[in-house]
Amino acid sequence: MRKSKRLLLLEWAEQSRIDPERLTEAMRVSDVLPSADDWRGFLDTLLLWLGALLTASGVVFFFAYNWDDLGRFTRFALVEGLLLVALLGVWRLGIDRLSGKIALMVAAVFVGVLLALVGQTYQTGADTYELFAVWCVLILPWTLIARFDGLWVFWLFLLNVAVIIYYDTFGGIFGVVFGVEQMLWLLFLINTTALLVWEFLVSRGHSSRRSIRWMTRLLATVSCGLITALAIFGIFSDSQWLSLLGPIIWLVWMVCAYLWYRTVVLDVYVLAIAVLSAVAVVNVVLARILFNGVLEHSGGLLVMSLSVIGLSSFGAFWLRGVVKGAQT
């Protein structure tokens, strides 16, 4: 609401309906600009986030320095000590407060530092993906009890990295080419499941939609991006059943996204990325048809150019209609 008011007031000022000299006052009266209390809260959060980020980064850099003078027991004592301090912070601040949740996130980062130190010190011969996989498993209980979307994003990020590094190392079951598709399917499964769980929790009232909207949008973007890539892979695949699977699941995703984000809970952002996905996939199909001898290259490129522009314009027109409908 604040963002829309801002643009509306600027528009009225542009139309000279508000004197520019009084625009600041108009913004304040409309609660667009932050009050003194808003500033106080903002500074508090900013200092907390930035302080925690710099502190955790400093520790990570320190152990990357690989200081040879430190004996291995001293190194372990330092990392475990910092981990303990972070956990003491969680205990003192309380898991329900934002500062407590951030302290737990810092502790989760230190777990990774500790695992890296174990791998570095004992040269266990473990693969890199195992570091991230074990890291995920170890911090999962904390992630569950924290009920903090920032920590969930971090956890999912680690899980995604573990999968990517695994496939980068082993190339999948049938070799490198199929390994990429397998990896994308697994990532799609992970991130779409996370999205479904999130939507389920929100619909059950475990959190307000608005407060975790950024989280659902992030997951929806990743999920949509992955299924779009899989659909495109399928279109260019020579295997009969593989060529159908990607596009069919993509179609199912699009229908479900429309039904949920258009008719049940309105989120125009997800609809916008769905439109972009549709433009991409439809034009890849068009390219496959056109460049199989239907048209020579220049003609084909011209048709595709008009198709991209036309479909995206139609999509934007539809999205604007959806936004207008929601506002009246």
Partner: peptide, 22 residues
């Protein structure tokens, strides 16, 4: 890396301390 880690760690602690003083 050592200088950078000290800079970041120290800066982080200072900002957290400033938050408390504020």
């Amino acid at each position: 890396l050592l200088q950078k880690s000290i800079l970041l760690f120290g800066s982080g602690l200072v900002l957290l301390a400033v938050r408390q003083v504020l």
